[in-house]
Amino acid sequence: KELVLALYDYQEKSPREVTMKKGDILTLLNSTNKDWWKVEVADRQGFVPAAYVKKL
């Protein structure tokens, strides 16, 4: 499975999103959308801005 690194803190703004902290390592589930990537963090799945994460 592919992992991404959170480059910035992100606070979810809708139930479809997830909160992450800078430095978090997240499991990447889907990166087909260039703006929003689906990730899993702490047993929750949701979207984060693609610009806020980097593939490892």
Rank of each mutant, 00 (worst) to 15 (best):
Trp36Gln: 03
Val53Tyr: 01
Lys54Phe: 10
Asp43His: 12
Glu12Trp: 05
Ser14Ala: 09
Trp36Glu: 04
Thr19Met: 04
Lys1Leu: 14
Ala42Asn: 14
Leu26Phe: 06
Ala42Thr: 10
Lys55Met: 10
Pro49Gly: 02
Lys13Ile: 07
Leu28Arg: 01
Lys1Glu: 10
Phe47Tyr: 15
Gln11Lys: 13
Ser14Tyr: 07
Lys13Ala: 11
Ser14His: 12
Tyr10Cys: 02
Leu56Asp: 04
Asn33Glu: 12
Val53Gly: 01
Gly46Ser: 02
Lys55Asn: 07
Glu12Leu: 08
Pro49Thr: 02
Ala51Ser: 14
Trp36Asp: 01
Met20Ser: 00
Tyr52His: 09
Ala42Gln: 13
Ala6Asn: 00
Leu3Pro: 04
Glu17Ala: 06
Val48His: 00
Glu12Val: 06
Glu12Cys: 12
Phe47Gly: 01
Ala51Leu: 12
Trp36His: 03
Tyr52Ser: 14
Lys54Leu: 13
Leu28Tyr: 02
Trp36Thr: 02
Met20Cys: 06
Lys38Leu: 15
Tyr10Arg: 02
Tyr52Gly: 09
Pro15Ala: 14
Thr32Ala: 12
Ser14Gln: 08
Thr27Met: 13
Tyr8Asn: 09
Thr19Trp: 05
Leu56Met: 10
Thr32Pro: 04
Leu29His: 06
Val18Tyr: 03
Leu5Cys: 10
Gly23Met: 04
Thr19Ala: 07
Gly46Lys: 02
Leu7Arg: 05
Asn30Glu: 15
Leu29Arg: 03
Gln11Trp: 13
Ala50Phe: 02
Lys54His: 12
Lys34His: 12
Lys21Trp: 10
Asp9Tyr: 04
Pro15Ser: 12
Asp35Glu: 13
Trp37Gln: 00
Thr32Glu: 15
Met20Ala: 02
Val53Ile: 08
Ser14Lys: 07
Asp9Met: 04
Val53Glu: 02
Tyr52Trp: 07
Ala50Pro: 06
Asp9Glu: 05
Leu29Tyr: 03
Val4Ala: 11
Phe47Trp: 15
Val41Arg: 15
Ala42Arg: 14
Lys1Arg: 14
Tyr52Leu: 14
Glu17Thr: 08
Gly23Phe: 05
Gly23Trp: 07
Val41Cys: 14
Ala42Phe: 15
Tyr10Phe: 07
Arg16Pro: 06
Leu56Cys: 15
Ser31Pro: 07
Glu17Cys: 07
Pro15Cys: 10
Arg44Ile: 06
Met20Gln: 02
Asp24Pro: 00
Glu2Cys: 14
Glu40Pro: 00
Trp37Phe: 07
Asn30Ile: 09
Gln45Arg: 11
Glu12Asn: 08
Val18Asn: 03
Val48Trp: 01
Gly23Ala: 03
Lys21His: 11
Lys54Val: 15
Pro49Tyr: 03
Asp24Trp: 11
Met20Leu: 09
Leu5Phe: 09
Leu3Gly: 03
Met20Gly: 01
Lys1Val: 14
Gln45Pro: 06
Glu12Gln: 13
Val48Asn: 00
Ala6Glu: 01
Ser14Phe: 07
Asp24Glu: 11
Val18Lys: 02
Tyr10Met: 01
Val4Phe: 05
Val48Thr: 01
Lys34Phe: 08
Lys54Ser: 12
Thr19Arg: 06
Asp35Lys: 13
Lys22Gly: 05
Leu28Asp: 01
Gln11Ile: 15
Asp9Cys: 05
Leu28Pro: 01
Lys1Thr: 12
Tyr10Leu: 01
Ser31Thr: 09
Lys34Ser: 12
Ser14Ile: 04
Glu2Gln: 14
Lys13Asp: 06
